[in-house]
Amino acid sequence: MLNDWLFIGLMLVIAPIFPIAALIIPRILAPKKPNPLKTQTYECGIETVGDTWVQFKAQYYNFALVFLVFDVEIVFLFPWAVAFNQLPLYGVIVGILFIEVLVIGLIYAWRKGILEWS
């Protein structure tokens, strides 16, 4: 089984080499003449005001939160799907029950207005 992962392991090592090579070539070929005006942050030509760390909407966080719970649940379902042939009907229904509990969470989030972008 480790032999199956050998290819992926080598892929992890070798795949980044292509883009790294593509970044090294311009270092040799391309001109390099930075000046303060050129390296300025581009915000539509207007000079940047203040810090980049402005306060963004905290709602992005809520969606990440709901996603996290769903993600964990879905990952659990994959072994269940793989073992489908060995399961009795009862096992399948239990798995679906697992999903339905998740749906309760979704409905709750919905009713609470978490899924609303205001």
Binding site: L65, V66, V94, L97, L102, A109
Partner: peptide, 21 residues
């Protein structure tokens, strides 16, 4: 444990919503 994990996750979601929202 499998079903309890599901309910635990539900509880975590509801708790997180209450705290964050």
């Amino acid at each position: 444990p499998f079903e309890i994990a599901s309910i635990l996750l539900l509880a975590a979601l509801i708790g997180a919503i209450i705290i964050a929202w």
